[in-house]
Design a protein around this nucleic acid. Structure first.
Lengths: 259, 259
DNA sequence: CGTCGTCTTGATTAACCTCAAGAGGTGTGG
DNA sequence: CCACACCTCTTGAGGTTAATCAAGACGACG
């Protein structure tokens, strides 16, 4: 019944939170209206008050903040299975916006459904809360990396993160994945100009740390890139906290709690 | 019975979330052990797994991230009444640390108590969740400002934020408050060196935008500082979202929902 | 009275921005 | 099939912001 994106959302929750069969079932019964978004279209307009959260079914979305001159700063990326704007459940009025970085499909899930879910199932409430905490953890790491580090290390870190996240949701391997963000999107994430982003990316390519054809990213030497970035995936709060764990994730699958 | 810091925490929650008398009462019954922390001491060590959250009773705490070379990046400041590390309720293992920036007293509240509270009272669960969302909202704003803007505008923005937050918790006015962070702490927040932070602060002083004696901050011309910073307090998610509201906050007091 | 933490200053170097323009691809309409 | 617009990526030269290294001044504290 629910391979319209909700199953991927449940899978994401269970990466970090154990849920009973009943709770899983309840999550899978979430429903909402499907929308197709054009590239560049706003999923959430800055300052809007919303009565629903948006689940990314396919594509890539970015949360952004606007400054006075209209410059964008991206503060999160959302992949398929991510519930963007889950924050809006406790805080329906958001200052930020979310836009589609590529043509994509989303599922709008009413707050009413989510609130009913969390009031009935305590474990689900904690799971959703944890989901926003993960978002905040990534944000804190971005701040630490982008404010302190050089553009090269910052970009390297972002690519490592996207690699792990893509692999975790089954979209390629951490060393080989498709990341549909333009160089300008990346520049607006790291707080650089697109010119400097271009040169930084070239530097990584010249060092043999990254290869790109189209929007496909290849990381020929993961350890070296991770070392340059000082990348430690612990902040992504995936279950097995010790550092070398990514291999296990796929084998575990979604049925962690069959009872 | 509970003017040991818990009342201030309840007050903070009620700035953003309406709670019934029973719910308020339940929050006030939170208890924990009181600790005195020395300046510079870690309240939470990076990588630690905790079974309690820490309520700031007096003083100032900072959440930080460490990079490979041991450089600190602060990712949050916590004032009296703030529950630092509330994130640890859904995620007990944290990558970041929290340290006392001045001598301070805290209250350690066991996760067990907080979890019992949220499982009984749905509105409290949403209130706590919202509290971590506010934290994330500040983080997103910091990223946007510090990554994009010049040091001068970034520092101006931080001072505006601290002014509003101090006034909101009743510690001075937004244009006149005590902020016990050293220039080095500020540098580690904006991602600058302490040398450059010093010069940036001097620039603000020379422009007549800020005056400091000791750790007391004076903002002679708030509108001009706010304009330089492009400061809009909406991201702090205080209740009356329209822009000019700070006057009302004090008058409302804690008894917003007497029933 | 000396030590330590914090603030301050100067000179040099590196990182990043700004402005400007061109190259390559893609989709569209004539 | 070509012409055109548009988006993204790329390159160059010069200017600004902030980092680095080094050292001195000041006050608080024991």
């Amino acid at each position: 019944m629910a391979s319209d994106g909700v199953a991927e959302f449940l899978r994401r929750l269970m990466l970090r939170s154990p849920l009973s069969a009943e709770e899983q079932h309840a999550v899978l019964h979430l429903s909402g209206q499907r929308y197709a978004m054009a590239s560049g279209q706003d999923i959430v307009t800055p300052g809007q008050t919303v009565d629903h959260a948006c689940l990314v079914v396919t594509g890539l979305a970015g949360r952004f903040d606007l400054d006075g001159e209209g410059c964008r700063q991206f503060t999160a990326f959302y992949l398929p299975g991510d519930m963007c704007d889950l924050h809006s459940v406790p805080s329906p009025h958001t200052g930020w916006g979310i836009s589609a970085l590529v043509p994509m499909t989303i599922l709008r899930i009413p707050h009413a459904e989510l609130r009913a879910l969390v009031s009935r199932y305590n474990a689900v409430a904690l799971a959703l809360w944890l989901d926003t905490v993960v978002d905040a953890s990534i944000l804190a790491k971005w701040l630490a990396i982008f404010a302190h580090k050089t553009a090269k290390a910052g970009l390297a870190h972002l690519l490592c993160e996207m690699g792990i996240r893509m692999e975790t949701v089954g979209l390629g391997a951490k060393t080989h994945f498709t990341f549909e963000a333009t160089q300008e999107h990346l520049a607006d994430t790291l707080g650089l100009t697109k010119v400097h982003m271009n040169r930084t990316l070239q530097a990584l390519r010249k060092d043999g740390l990254v290869e790109c054809v189209g929007r496909v990213i290849d990381i020929p030497d993961w350890p070296r890139l991770a070392k340059l970035a000082e990348f430690d995936p612990a902040y992504l709060l995936l279950k097995p906290q010790p550092t070398h764990f990514t291999a296990q994730i796929h084998e575990r699958g979604i049925a962690a709690n069959p009872d």
